[in-house]
Design a protein around this nucleic acid. Sequence first.
DNA 1: GTGATTATTTAACATTTGTAAAAGGATTGG
DNA 2: CCAATCCTTTTACAAATGTTAAATAATCAC
Lengths: 178, 178
Amino acid sequence: MPLSTESLQAINQIAWRRHIPKRTILQRASEVCPYFHFIEKGVGRVYYYHNEQEITAWLGFEGQIISAIDSFFTGKPTDYWIEILEDAQICSISNADIDWLFTHFPETERLGRLMITENYLRLDERMKLFAFHTAEQRYEILLRQFPDILQRVSLRYIASYLGITQVTLSRIRAEFRQ
Amino acid sequence: MPLSTESLQAINQIAWRRHIPKRTILQRASEVCPYFHFIEKGVGRVYYYHNEQEITAWLGFEGQIISAIDSFFTGKPTDYWIEILEDAQICSISNADIDWLFTHFPETERLGRLMITENYLRLDERMKLFAFHTAEQRYEILLRQFPDILQRVSLRYIASYLGITQVTLSRIRAEFRQ
DNA sequence: GTGATTATTTAACATTTGTAAAAGGATTGG
DNA sequence: CCAATCCTTTTACAAATGTTAAATAATCAC
């Protein structure tokens, strides 16, 4: 989406680009998440705790946004943790700066709406995936969507992202090898 | 969220309010959905077909939005059908009018963003529900969220919305009665 | 390199959920 | 009111997935 020079300059001023080593915790649960993060390079995962177990809610790759999106929009403390899995290049913009940007450059508000919409549609897809596909089908689809995911994300996170146990994922993979 | 008089007038001009009898199909799959619908009264369900089976993807009650949201935002034909389950009062706004509204009244673009955000968060909740709750827990949570749902929506739609078969729902309900 | 730690697979068994078919119940149109 | 239809429950059995524990395999810190 094309933006005016003024808007682009404004974005450049408020964006915060930096290198982040792997295993960094970008966001802790029970804190407010004042940023959304755009992944220029690397992989991150969003997870939460359910019965003392880590559940991976989201995996973010290059070109995608990763954020504790519940908190980012509501201003309440998040349930989510964010961890960087691979050395990454991240570009972050704070909530306050976003508000300022949207107010002063209305065309960017539209961009914001489009970005949320895109995320919404991906979540909608994910929802459909869960409602009526078997664990095996979900695994196949994930591999097609992110062919290099096996090299980049450990299997227990993948299992969790697929909503299954690691044992079930192992069984599915054993099937695959034959 | 407060809006200026001008924005409110504009919304009143483009909004289309009407009464819709139950069993009306509000939206057919493979057509573009040029509207989003705000439910003032009544219940609607959004569904799609998967292996010749109807899958209920969403239930909308008073005060909520119901729409083939994939199509509304992408402009492509939708996968979803929308059916009104109870005599309803619906307020609809077309895509074209929304664009016009957002362009001429920037503050409404923000409202639009907030509405998508709210939907996004509800979908996020629903996703968590599916990833790590049993069918029984999902049923309990749904009843707490919409206490009168049993009087208003038939069990096969509820089962489908919960991502389970009607048989499983029956079993869960039989457990409950003891 | 080596021992310790972490990740993945395998096995045996339990539980949940699905499938198909039949039997009751409720609702609807004439 | 009755027959037809649709909705819900029940039953018996099959398939998918979870749980726990142990066995390998891979990785990490020293």
